[in-house]
């Protein structure tokens, strides 16, 4: 059913939400990205897979503004996007959950959710942090994601790895982004928490958010993705609609040249 909705949405808006054209990025002598083209449609969930150092993280950091590509163009809704910092990308609705989570340990849960966009109230002409509103909205956001923390006033350093990861996801998802990039969002999560994140991904996509998901948990991809892109040595080597592929096919595409050997063993 969800696929039908997405196809309708895709037909209605044929312009990709994000289009990458010939993206190249080099670090010293290492060619991290060697000319990558990619389309991300509105409301689409795109799985990005590949071996380690295939260029997945670099590509997503280019989209999120953390890296500026050496060559190539980024189009957002058909317009050339000139952002060069994460803040500028965020301003046009591109959010990212970083692998290192990017949380501030000595700030409380609610404060981390609102970092950089704290609501304020006016007291005698002074603009002070509106703690009550931060706490109420944080509670609502976390409840919607089934995330349990001991206290919203707890410092993030007091939380477990899974709770920290949940909070990083909640922060990116809370502000109705147009593009949400998630780099290994479920690596530290327990079973119930993974389920909640997968549900969240589907829900956001149905609301029109375009999502890029990097994960080593291939079984998750088949549950939420519309399309899967395989990277290898800094290039895009394959693209599959989810109905046209299976686990074995995907593993073969990821390991590439090593596939024949693997089959020999099997």
């Amino acid at each position: 059913m969800t696929e039908g909705i997405n196809q309708a949405a895709a037909a209605a808006a044929a312009t990709p939400r994000v289009r990458l054209e010939g993206i190249r990025k080099q670090f010293g002598s290492i060619q991290a990205l060697r000319g990558v083209d990619l389309d991300l449609m509105p409301g689409e969930v795109l799985g990005l897979v590949g071996d380690n150092a295939a260029g997945k993280s670099t590509l997503t950091k280019v989209i999120s503004g953390a890296y500026v590509p050496d060559e190539g163009r980024i189009l957002v809704d058909g317009q050339a996007a000139g952002y060069t910092t994460p803040a500028e990308a965020r301003a046009i609705g591109i959010e990212m959950v970083y692998q290192d989570l990017s949380l501030c340990d000595t700030i409380d849960v609610a404060g981390n959710l609102f970092l950089g966009r704290e609501p304020r109230r006016s007291v005698l002409g002074l603009k002070l942090l509106d703690r009550q509103r931060m706490r109420e909205e944080a509670r609502r956001n976390l409840d919607a994601l089934d995330i349990h923390v001991p206290s919203l006033d707890a410092y993030v350093e007091q939380l477990s790895g899974g709770q920290r990861q949940s909070i990083a996801i909640a922060r990116a998802a809370a502000f109705a982004p147009r593009v949400l990039i998630m780099d290994e969002p479920t690596s530290a999560l327990a079973v119930a928490e993974v389920e909640a994140v997968l549900r969240l991904i589907r829900r956001l996509a149905e609301g029109g958010t375009s999502i890029i998901l990097i994960t080593h948990r291939l079984q998750d991809l088949f549950r939420v993705c519309d399309r899967i892109v395989v990277m290898y040595e800094g290039t895009k080597v394959a693209e599959r609609r989810i109905g046209e592929t299976d686990l074995e096919d995907l593993v073969g595409l990821i390991v590439g040249g090593k596939a024949e050997k693997l089959k020999g063993h099997a």
Binding site: T85, P86, A91, T106, L115
Partner: peptide, 15 residues
Amino acid sequence: TAIGANAEAARRAGI
């Protein structure tokens, strides 16, 4: 406080 805790996170948050 955020800069002292994690300057790169603060930058990514648009501070």
